[in-house]
């Protein structure tokens, strides 16, 4: 059976959920061979094997942390040449897309980004994408070369499928360009203890209607009662009420949770672009004409300062 290369997104050996989802999709096309780079690369093997990786190629070098993107492209290319896979799958993060694009160019292949589903097809893998702010669904293929496809979080279920997952050292020679862009300082993001926005099953977002940084406590309390991640509209982020990393929409994160709760958000096209594919959508807005109500499964026309705390209380009571 053909092998499929899967690029592993991990933090010091802890594999992030979107990579496990990629393994599910990769198994539809062939046998997943994982590529894990940087500090803790070898520690990823157990989780990857558990989810279907037949092999885990690993390599660690200081270049991965000290220089931007290119060292990782060099390594993924080395893996590509070692394996000759039927396809290369990469998680659709900002960096993942850049790595995938440069690899595609080097190996003379096409690239598809932000797939939300993947199936085997007669002429290679068929990717489903959600375009024009999720107003359309397209199906595309790569016409030339080995398909390189980046896949969004929450595109498939994580499935246990134990496989060998034998660790092999990947031989990497860095290109002359690898050290072109130096990372001179790095400030890790502080953990909030809440789920990762793009990976969360439930997202609770606040917009301009929240009216102040201090009021985001109301949104956070609701999120915590549901074990949810917190999101924000760009208006709330631009006002300085919530960090940009939590922005949902075209220029923020794109989320596709089981449940999305929007409070004080009007539902502009650029916001919809990042949340329209959520399974169940709920909104609280005092303007009955707000476009967000066109999307909802359940909407409450009312003041969020009344509705949200009451909802949080009720959830706590029901949960006991």
């Amino acid at each position: 059976m053909a092998e499929v290369l899967v690029y592993v997104d991990h933090v010091d050996g802890a594999v992030r959920k979107p990579t496990l989802e990629l393994l599910t999709l990769a198994r539809r096309i062939g046998e997943p061979v994982a590529v894990a780079l940087g500090a803790g690369a070898a520690d990823t093997a157990a989780a990857l094997a558990e989810h279907g990786a037949v092999k885990v190629l690993t390599h660690d070098a200081s270049e991965y942390a000290d220089y931007l993107v290119v060292p990782k492209v060099d390594a993924l290319q080395a893996a590509y040449e070692a394996v000759s896979p039927a396809a290369v799958l990469v998680p659709s993060s900002a960096e993942g897309k850049e790595i995938a694009a440069r690899l595609a160019l080097r190996i003379g292949s096409g690239i598809i980004t932000d797939a939300v589903d993947l199936e085997a097809g007669d002429e290679g893998p068929v990717a489903t994408q959600s375009v024009f702010a999720a107003a359309f669904t397209t199906k595309s293929r790569i016409a030339k070369g080995t398909p390189v496809i980046t896949v969004k979080p929450n595109s498939a279920a994580v499935e246990a499928a134990p496989a060998a997952g034998s660790v092999e050292a990947l031989a990497v020679t860095f290109s002359e360009k690898a050290t072109g862009t130096k990372v001179t300082a790095r400030t890790p993001r502080e953990s909030t203890g809440r789920p990762e926005l793009t990976e969360a099953a439930i997202v609770v977002s606040g917009g301009r209607g929240v009216n102040g940084a201090e009021n985001f406590a109301i949104i956070e309390a609701l999120a915590d009662s549901l074990g949810a991640a917190v999101g924000a509209s760009r208006a709330a982020v631009d006002a300085g009420w919530y960090p940009h990393t939590n922005q949902v929409g075209q220029t923020g994160k794109s989320v596709s949770p089981q449940l999305y709760i929007a409070s004080g958000i009007s539902g502009a096209i650029q916001h919809r672009a990042g949340m329209q594919t959520s399974k169940t959508i709920v909104a609280i807005n005092k303007d009955a004409e707000a476009p967000i109500f066109d999307l909802v499964d359940y909407g409450v026309v009312g003041d969020l300062f009344d509705v949200v705390p009451q909802l949080t209380e009720e959830i706590k009571t029901r949960k006991g």
Partner: peptide
């Protein structure tokens, strides 16, 4: 979807839906 107007019980109605 269902749209309700909050008349004091909006949060509870939403909890019921959820």
């Amino acid at each position: 979807g269902t749209i309700v107007k909050d008349e004091g019980e909006g949060g509870k109605q939403l909890a019921e839906f959820l």
